[in-house]
Simulated assay, not measured.
Amino acid sequence: MGATRPLAVLGNTARGLVRYLEGVLGADKYRVYLEHQGRDHPGITPMTEREFWRDYTDWQEKNPQGRCC
């Protein structure tokens, strides 16, 4: 029973680290987009993940900003 608490803390820490890294790397953009759509545009069907990433990369090509690659 005593080992359960440290494992729970470790699991929460790992989940937090993953979310942080997703944010830094941009992997959470689609999830954030879906949250925005649901909150601010509830009647509109959101893009699929594939459509979202295509639209996002097209936008990046048209609007170059400082980025590593």
Rank of each mutant, 00 (worst) to 15 (best):
M1T: 10
M1K: 12
G2K: 11
G2W: 10
G2P: 00
T4M: 08
P6H: 12
P6K: 08
P6Q: 10
P6S: 14
L7F: 10
L7V: 05
L7N: 08
L7Q: 06
L7A: 12
A8F: 11
A8G: 07
V9Y: 04
L10T: 03
L10H: 13
N12E: 07
N12H: 06
N12L: 13
N12T: 08
T13D: 13
A14P: 02
A14K: 08
A14D: 14
R15Y: 05
R15V: 07
G16K: 09
V18R: 11
R19T: 05
R19V: 15
R19P: 01
R19F: 06
Y20F: 15
Y20C: 11
Y20Q: 15
Y20G: 03
L21W: 10
L21Q: 14
L21A: 09
L21D: 12
E22P: 03
E22T: 02
E22F: 05
E22M: 14
G23S: 12
G23C: 12
L25W: 15
L25N: 12
G26L: 03
A27S: 10
A27D: 07
A27L: 15
A27Q: 07
A27P: 03
A27H: 02
D28R: 02
D28S: 10
D28T: 00
K29W: 03
K29V: 08
Y30V: 03
Y30N: 05
R31G: 06
R31E: 15
R31D: 10
V32D: 13
V32Q: 14
Y33L: 04
L34S: 01
L34H: 00
L34M: 09
L34A: 04
E35L: 15
H36M: 14
G38L: 13
G38H: 08
R39V: 07
D40Q: 09
H41S: 07
P42H: 10
P42Y: 05
P42E: 06
G43Q: 08
I44Y: 00
I44G: 02
I44S: 07
I44A: 05
I44C: 03
T45H: 09
M47F: 01
T48L: 02
T48M: 03
E49H: 01
E49V: 00
E51S: 05
E51Q: 15
E51I: 02
F52R: 01
W53A: 00
W53R: 05
R54P: 01
D55R: 05
D55C: 05
D55H: 05
D55I: 00
T57F: 07
W59Q: 08
W59T: 06
Q60F: 01
Q60L: 10
Q60T: 04
Q60Y: 00
E61W: 00
N63Q: 10
N63R: 06
P64W: 09
Q65T: 12
Q65M: 14
Q65R: 13
Q65H: 13
Q65W: 01
G66P: 01
G66S: 10
G66E: 07
G66R: 11
G66C: 04
R67K: 14
R67A: 11
R67C: 07
C68S: 12
C68G: 06
C68I: 11
C68T: 08
C69K: 15
C69H: 09
